[in-house]
Write a protein that binds this DNA or RNA. Structure first.
Length: 301
DNA sequence: CGTCAGGTAAAAA
DNA sequence: TTTTTACCTGAC
């Protein structure tokens, strides 16, 4: 079945957005199990011309499946209107050429996005995605033979941090702890964050807040600074006005808008939100991949 | 083998 | 308030 809205699936899947790791690549498809209305559904998506071709297995209607995919791949976002916006600005006009069809890859499970985003801090895409995959396979639920959901917050909060803790308090051999997933010093942040979202902070409340309140709220979580908070709000909760600013976005923005002058990351965030408004999230996504694919990134390094 | 990258938290200025 | 430093791990 085809959804007639343009997307570049592979680019979107492999763009390192911290909603989740890429889905499992099988032949020319990407597959993953998602919980939809509390039922496990195996999705299979692939590129068909400019569009998304999909199949699914699970106890939901076709309408519900399309609704999920529309959200996750942000298919109702008007790319052509966005490209028109980009083409009207000297600094941005080249970007759509390099990333045509790139869309937000939004979280089906906001908690997975929170942990992914915490893991992504001071880390490489390759390493944090492997950590999340490891956590799914160790403690998530297994469906359709090879697929795993991300474990619930109430599970993660009780996982041992490292080998020492496991040896001291556990009754199982080593390897069943957070650090064994390669998360390094983020292990205590992950545990504390899981605890907070299990007992103190309601995820559904975050989506009801306005952007500023949600940002301040989520900043209180250990391991969540401004960059991670903006990733969580953008990829986990679809706050498109977020402009996650890291060292690369700083370099690119500084090159395009400030004549290469060194400016601090928090100024870059203010600039991006002010300059791009509701397009901030998309501009951030496109800036990063434009720089990556145009060769600008190696030039700035 | 050493060096480096990359956000956050905590210490220091 | 702003700036500096330590933190795990994998890539090189």
């Amino acid at each position: 079945m085809i959804i007639r809205k343009p997307i570049n699936l592979e680019l979107t899947q492999l763009s390192g957005q911290t909603s989740q790791p890429p889905w499992i690549n099988v032949g020319d498809s990407f597959r993953e199990v998602l919980m939809v209305n509390e039922k496990p559904v195996l999705f299979d998506v692939k590129q068909s011309g400019d569009y998304l071709d999909f199949n699914f297995t699970g106890d939901i209607s076709k309408k519900e499946a399309i609704h999920s995919l529309n959200y996750i791949y942000d298919l109702d976002f008007d790319l052509n209107k966005f490209y028109n916006y980009l083409s009207n600005q000297a600094e941005l006009e080249e970007m759509s050429e390099f990333c045509k069809g790139l869309r937000l890859f939004l979280a089906n499970d906001p908690f997975e996005c929170i942990i992914s985003s915490i893991c992504s801090a001071n880390n490489s895409i390759k390493r944090w995605t492997k950590s999340i995959r490891d956590m799914k396979e160790k403690w998530g639920n297994n469906y359709f033979d090879y697929y795993y959901t991300f474990p619930d917050k109430s599970i993660i909060q009780d996982i041992y941090e490292d080998d020492n803790e496991e040896l001291l308090f556990g009754d199982k051999p080593c390897g069943n702890n957070l650090k064994s997933c390669g998360v390094g010093y983020r292990a205590p942040y992950i545990k504390k964050a899981s605890h907070i979202f299990t007992l103190e902070m309601d995820l559904s409340e975050i989506s009801k807040m306005d952007y500023e309140e949600a940002f301040e709220t989520i900043l209180k979580v250990p391991g969540v600074g401004p960059k991670v908070a903006d990733c969580i709000l953008l990829y986990g909760f679809n706050f498109k006005e977020a402009f996650p600013s890291d060292v690369w976005i700083k370099r690119i923005v500084s090159h395009l808008y400030f004549d290469g002058k060194d400016i601090n990351v928090s100024k870059v965030r203010d600039f991006g939100m002010d300059e791009f408004g509701d397009y901030a999230g998309y501009v951030q996504l496109y800036l990063f991949h434009y720089a990556r694919m145009s060769g600008l990134m190696s030039k700035l390094k």
